[in-house]
Simulated assay, not measured.
Amino acid sequence: MKPVVSAMKAWSCTVMSVFAIIILTVLGVLFRSGHEELVGGIDDPADGKAVSKTVFSAVFVYIAFFVFCGLQGLLHIRENRRGAISL
């Protein structure tokens, strides 16, 4: 199986996805717990649990990106071990 994206794009996407998963998970947990800084003001959302569901759905999208891009990176490693020339 051949990689779809370049090695640099695959590894960049993988690293950014890890950071996005960590940051969005922390935000989702804070919204779910009703942290005062996030749901305590006048302009802030009243229903933190609904917001956390949306944030966690974005986390699942980034998990899919992480899996896809990580597999693409691993395909590049496997292809380089076979002696293929990359242009």
Score class of each variant (00 low, 15 high):
A7V: 07
H35A: 08
H35Q: 09
F66I: 00
H35D: 12
I23A: 11
I22P: 02
S86E: 08
G83V: 01
V29L: 13
Y62S: 10
Y62Q: 10
V39A: 07
L38G: 07
I21D: 00
I42N: 06
G41Q: 10
S86F: 00
N80H: 04
Q72W: 04
E37F: 02
L30C: 13
V39W: 05
L24V: 05
S52A: 13
L74C: 06
E37N: 08
G34T: 11
D44P: 00
V59M: 05
T14L: 15
A50S: 15
V55K: 08
C69F: 09
I63V: 07
F56S: 13
A50M: 14
G83W: 00
F56D: 14
F65L: 07
K53Y: 12
S12H: 14
F60D: 06
H76M: 04
G83N: 01
Y62G: 03
S57F: 07
N80Y: 01
R81M: 04
G48P: 03
L71K: 05
A50W: 12
F31A: 09
N80E: 06
F66T: 00
W11Y: 13
I22G: 02
A64D: 12
V55C: 06
L75P: 00
S52C: 07
V4D: 14
H35P: 05
G34S: 15
N80K: 06
D47K: 06
F68D: 07
A58W: 07
A20W: 01
V5N: 12
P3T: 03
S52N: 08
V29E: 12
C69T: 06
R81K: 09
S33K: 15
L87K: 02
H35R: 01
V61W: 04
A46K: 14
L87F: 00
G28L: 09
F56M: 15
F65V: 06
G34C: 15
G40D: 04
A20K: 03
F68A: 06
F19D: 13
W11S: 14
S12M: 15
K49A: 10
G48E: 03
I63S: 02
A46F: 06
S57R: 06
E37T: 00
R78S: 05
I21C: 00
F66V: 00
I22H: 01
G41H: 04
T54N: 15
I22C: 02
A84M: 04
V67L: 12
K9P: 07
A58L: 11
E79K: 04
M16H: 11
S6W: 06
V18D: 05
I42C: 02
M16A: 13
A7E: 15
P45R: 01
T54M: 15
A46L: 09
L30M: 15
S52Y: 07
I23T: 10
V26H: 03
L30F: 12
S86G: 02
D47E: 13
I85C: 01
A64L: 12
K49D: 09
A20G: 10
D43F: 02
V59E: 09
G83I: 01
V39D: 08
P45C: 00
F60M: 10
E37H: 03
L87Y: 00
I22M: 08
S57N: 11
S17G: 12
I77G: 10
F31M: 14
M8V: 15
G70V: 04
W11V: 15
T14P: 09
P3D: 03
I22F: 04
S33M: 14
V51A: 10
D44S: 11
A84N: 12
F56L: 12
A50C: 13
E36A: 13
I77Y: 05
V5H: 13
A50T: 14
